[in-house]
Simulated assay, not measured.
Amino acid sequence: MATLTSQSAKRITRGRCFFGNPEKTKSSILPVKSCDNGGGRGGRKLVCANAVNGAVKVNGKAADFRSSAAQPVSVDNDDDAFRLGKFVEGRLVYRQRFVIRSYEIGPDRTATMETLMNLLQETALNHVMSSGLAGDGFGATRQMSLRKLIWVVTRINIQVDKYSQWGDVVEIDTWVASSGKNGMRRDWVIRDRRTKKMIARATSNWVMMNRETRRLSKIPEEVWEEVLPFYLDRNSIAGDANTSHRIQKLTDATAESVRSGLAPRWSDMDVNQHVNNVKYIGWILESVPLKVLVEYHLTSITLDYRRECRQSRLLESLTTMSSTGTPPSTLCSSADLQSTHLIRQQDDEAEIVRARAEWRCKGHR
């Protein structure tokens, strides 16, 4: 018999079962001969159903109809632990696990770069929430919310050694540190839960913006006091060399391919009313040659966010590709590749995102 967690047993009468608040009886036992399950030829009759002090038994087996909403939720519950993750290393590192879903893989049956970026973002937000610092903003602390401040990413670099497949479980560690006088750095490490091997890593830089004026802001002293106890001076990418180099600006003359007419949709917006930083990955790939997408893995990408983007703008995606060496003896037609990208506004050509990427032939072991 199915468990109905949203209602309690009200009374059981001959031939029919009603749900609501349980009624007290002299014996607290209400015998019935059958229970109406809605009719139909396949309906099963219940020989006996008893209600004893709010607990219902059908054919001698317990069936709990009491509301789960009244049950207190323990922070140690396995479901919450899976959903929210946990702190390790003295609460300096936050760890969360994810299963790669079928809708998170691409044509080659592995997780996409967009999937990895989304998982990084989810882990970061749950880190803030689980730390007890979360205010009413999207990843903002209490003091930030009081001052109408939000975090905005200025640069992110992710490097992938191996893409997970459907059904794999990944474990993501994240932590934060200072970045200069007025910024924050957030790092991640992704491991395969079964092998414990690191399969990807990422680093990013963030600054504060006033969510109403859309102007950058210094980090207030009160916010520093909130976040400093969680800072860990550790780099996921040694030297962070790939994020320190300036990314070349593409123009119509230097770009090999241009895709115009890219329109941000309402679903591309985040709660801060600008395009979610992960969405740019898809637009970047729109101008990458199909042969590259089919034959190569995107092993590294650095995104340099120049300005925020709203829904009303049409965008263009520009790409240029270059080879990094001698073609290997594989199915690929060339050696590993590098690419430079630009997402710009179509009307005035104002830069939104610059990016640099590295590609490895899928047949190259």
Score class of each variant (00 low, 15 high):
Pro31Arg: 07
Gly85Thr: 06
Glu23Leu: 13
Gly42Glu: 15
Thr174Asn: 11
Glu226Ile: 00
Trp266Pro: 00
Asn53Leu: 14
Ser178Asn: 10
Thr254Gln: 05
Phe19Glu: 04
Ala357Lys: 03
Arg91Gly: 06
Asp64Ile: 12
Lys291Asp: 14
Gln96Trp: 02
His364Met: 06
Phe18Cys: 01
Arg44His: 14
Asp233Gly: 00
Arg44Tyr: 15
Arg310Cys: 04
Leu228Phe: 11
Gln346Lys: 13
Ile190His: 00
Leu290Glu: 07
Ala124Leu: 04
Gly85Val: 08
Phe82Gly: 07
Gly20Asn: 02
Met117His: 12
Leu262Val: 15
Val52Trp: 08
Gly167Ile: 04
Trp224Val: 08
Thr110Arg: 13
Gln273Glu: 00
Tyr94Val: 09
Arg259Cys: 12
Leu331Glu: 14
Ala70Arg: 02
Ser130Gln: 12
Arg41Met: 10
Gly106Asn: 11
Asp233Met: 06
Arg66Gln: 14
Leu84Asn: 15
Arg101Lys: 15
Trp266Tyr: 15
Arg265Leu: 09
Val288His: 01
Thr324Val: 09
Ser260Glu: 11
Asp240Trp: 01
Leu293Arg: 10
Met198Asp: 14
Asn276Trp: 02
Asn77Leu: 12
Thr110Ile: 06
Arg193Gln: 03
His127Leu: 01
Ala177Cys: 12
Cys309Asn: 02
Trp188Arg: 06
Leu318Gln: 04
